[in-house]
Nucleic acid binder design. Structure first.
Lengths: 344, 344
DNA sequence: TATAGACATGTAATCGATTACATTTATCAT
DNA sequence: ATGATAAATGTAATCGATTACATGTCTATA
């Protein structure tokens, strides 16, 4: 922090006014005469004054900061979302604090502790894996109106959230494969118990049913969104007697892991097997073959979550805590090279 | 922030001691009798007290937070580095504030403003693009001992920094290609004026000279670390009369962009052209073909930068501001499939 | 037994900005 | 000209934790 700090008092002296006036020049400039206001600003400039946030926060009982909880900062999927948020918060002088829920899992610290310890005004949670117990803690402390979920959310709660239209994405993917001529379509899911896994799987199953496509248990393969799980799924698929001709993956990373291993085993994509991903991360366009996938507008997700949170924590919130309807961001099918008509 | 806040006074009352004692229990527990200490902690637990950071920060003139400046949050390259930092800072109760230098460029706000406005104890800068002017601002305000650079750094300054051994990485790459039998080796650089670009290019040129390999101007292609620049470079290479048989790319992303476009144009990697990257991001292992590259230990870079910064901003710093020697993290050649002996 | 020193704890000033309330000044209607 | 009202600014309490200094207690030594 600054060392030779210029205090509001110094500015006041310089401008020949009281500290109250200086403070008002900053927060309610319209209360002052034009001349006073200008004198004060001149003094602020000449002294190089900057408000001491700690003092202001103490007095106003605000923090001027929000916490973003990321399940795994190492996952590039989140970077665009963070970028979107950072853009919004940057505009409103709100600091963005980032914490990785993975880091604190071992420490036994609850999320609510994170919230309280870092003393922030609100929180955006990208991790839908919060337990009911954790959430209870929040509502116990009257904090549930300071949380917004983004991307993921917690099943069966009605906290405000921003999310992609996951089910629709899944339907679009299956539909696309169907139109290409595929009938035997497999799906590599996300981790069990994850809301996204559920939404995408159900969307996929619903569309498969609607199109009256063949059903086979082993065609629904459990994954966890990771590259590695794509590789494992590939091994299973290769070993199948009755192989699917197309695979819809719950994430682009899974698709990469899948394609990489299929290719290492002499199976060509899309000639032998078609692959569709979910997310449309930057790399998808540059993979070989370029990945056909469902685009999530991650930047918009970040921006909207930020905006929503700001509305929630405003002095007189526009958004009531009881709001139920999530903000849904539309998804889009991006057709590239990894899905093509089946061989036969 | 909390609403029905429990103050230190409440804890003191509950424990039957003074606020000073409660404060000491938190910051200097060894000053207290075991019994008092326990009484106080019991009271803290029973009241659910948490220190008000704003008040503490005001009084101690500290911020308990550090700022991390990222040139582009959207770039997945940074996520592992952030994860490493976040891990370290999490251990020491320091909040991590993240700002994207890209966001504020238009606003004309200087980095130093960011620093002062967010009132943090120190800053880790991942952006070596700071102008001399910006840096001057920091030293003018006596803040140069609160900055640590990571990955990138500013040429000709001696601020503490943590970086990979970029030149060695470049040498390893060229050497590997040489051993495979390549002689005509091209290089796609990073953006001009970037320190990494420079270090890697010079390392590459030095090794090429040492091995007495042929030199051709057009084999040094300007890029900017991005996927797109890899694509553009590929187009140039395809158009060359005298094509290199191998390309060393300044980043993995460039390598992906390159391979994707080569492949789209019927050139096979590694059969027709070998490719080596730099970074070893997670995906490299799963690309088709798996990318031979230079691994930067990004997690370690993050951790070390965090540690270094904490040493710098400690009350009695271990690290003097005049320290010159950067902390260098070793790199490693990771051999995969994208580089093989040349065809002829 | 007296006294110094070590140790434990308490009292109260302090960090710097905000803001309720008080005061002063200007404006207007009567 | 006078009192009422509005507008501009000042005074001082306040937010909650820390810590220098003061006080009190106990042990050890002469």
């Amino acid at each position: 922090m600054a060392q030779k700090s210029v205090r509001i008092r110094d500015v006041a002296k310089e401008a020949g006014v009281s500290t109250a006036t200086v403070s008002r020049a900053l927060s309610n400039p319209e209360l002052l005469t034009e001349t006073t206001r200008e004198t004060v600003f001149a003094a602020i400039r000449s002294t190089g004054y900057r408000v001491n946030k700690a003092a202001r926060n103490l007095r106003t009982r605000q923090a001027g900061a929000v916490l973003v909880l990321v399940p795994n900062l190492g996952n590039p999927f989140f970077s665009q979302i963070l970028a979107g948020m950072s853009e919004c918060f940057g505009d409103s002088d709100t600091s963005v604090l980032i914490a990785d829920t993975k880091d604190q899992a071992p420490s036994g610290k609850l999320i609510v502790d994170y919230f309280l310890d870092s003393q922030v005004d609100g929180m955006i949670c990208l991790d839908g894996g919060l337990s009911g117990h954790e959430l209870q803690q929040f509502s116990d402390k009257g904090l549930s109106n300071r949380i917004v979920f983004a991307c993921e959310w917690v099943h069966d709660t009605c906290l405000p959230s921003v999310r992609s239209d996951n089910a629709r994405g899944a339907r679009l993917a299956v539909q696309h494969l169907f139109e290409l001529g595929h009938r035997k379509i497999a799906h590599i899911t996300g981790p069990q118990e994850n809301v996204l896994t559920h939404a995408r799987r159900e969307g996929m199953l619903a569309e498969r049913a609607r199109l009256e496509l063949p059903v086979k248990d082993e065609w629904i393969i459990r994954g966890d969104f990771s590259l590695e799980s794509g590789r494992r799924a590939a091994e299973k698929i290769i070993a199948m007697e009755d192989r699917p001709t197309a695979v819809f993956c719950a994430s682009d990373q899974v698709a990469f892991g899948l394609m990489s291993t299929l290719s290492a085993n002499g199976l060509r994509v899309p000639e032998d097997i078609s692959v569709v991903g979910f997310d449309d991360i930057e790399l998808s366009e540059y993979y070989v073959p370029a990945l056909t996938t469902i685009r999530q507008d991650r930047h918009a997700l970040g921006r909207k979550a930020a905006t929503l949170l700001m509305e929630c924590i405003e002095p007189e919130p526009v958004v009531s805590a009881e709001r139920v309807a999530p903000v849904v961001v539309d998804v889009e099918l991006v057709v590239r090279q990894s899905a093509a008509p089946p061989a036969n």
